[in-house]
Design a protein around this nucleic acid. Sequence first.
DNA 1: ATTATATGCATAAATAACTTATGTATAAGA
DNA 2: TCTTATACATAAGTTATTTATGCATATAAT
Lengths: 112, 112
Amino acid sequence: MSNSKLYKGSLNTIILKLLEESDKMYGYEITQKVKEITKGELNITEGALYPALHKLEAEGLLDVEMQKVDNRVRKYYKLTEKGTKETANRLSELEEYIRTMQTIINPKWSIS
Amino acid sequence: MSNSKLYKGSLNTIILKLLEESDKMYGYEITQKVKEITKGELNITEGALYPALHKLEAEGLLDVEMQKVDNRVRKYYKLTEKGTKETANRLSELEEYIRTMQTIINPKWSIS
DNA sequence: ATTATATGCATAAATAACTTATGTATAAGA
DNA sequence: TCTTATACATAAGTTATTTATGCATATAAT
């Protein structure tokens, strides 16, 4: 996923957020989109992505729809209602995480 | 460590940053400091902390010094020179990670 | 007096998210 | 024809964590 270990745990949040923006996407499209918007900084591996998608589907957060394009099958994923709610939760957690880490990076407590 | 999985991978960075601020700290002190500055949001478990400290020491990023206080032994950790350099790297990675995730949370690309 | 809580360290087993490697298959470009 | 891109999948290995447990001293509460 990246040379930095920090991305561990954030893959699901990334997937959910992309699907919230794009309505429906297929796996390969997700890897390309992430590569594009992060300017190559983040490369999602297939070995991480596909199991993650299957799990999110099994949890009822995503719905799947097969579609044949140019003799190749694509599996389009979209958020369920439950998935939409969970996306909001995950994004709140991400913002909370960022706030917390900002506090640690940029400490006011070092003065006291 | 937290209900959110996002903290996975950031423990080492947190430890290094705290030691950069405080010069020397012992394990229990680190858990309390993190609890304090994050207002209880983040609780580092001992099962994660102590192995992490041992590993950072084995990698030559930390030096240890035992000290007896009130009949109890404390193990004070401080950054080595190598550790100080590595701390700077880890903090850069954290900032890069945060920037990347901000980009995903706050997308301009959804318009295009 | 005794029990719980706080302080302080440690490790072992289980879990979960990933990486790495491999596999299948079609299409397009060099 | 060989490589790259597209598109899916899974299995084995790695690693950072959680959960559980253990030892030991000090202090506060019942």
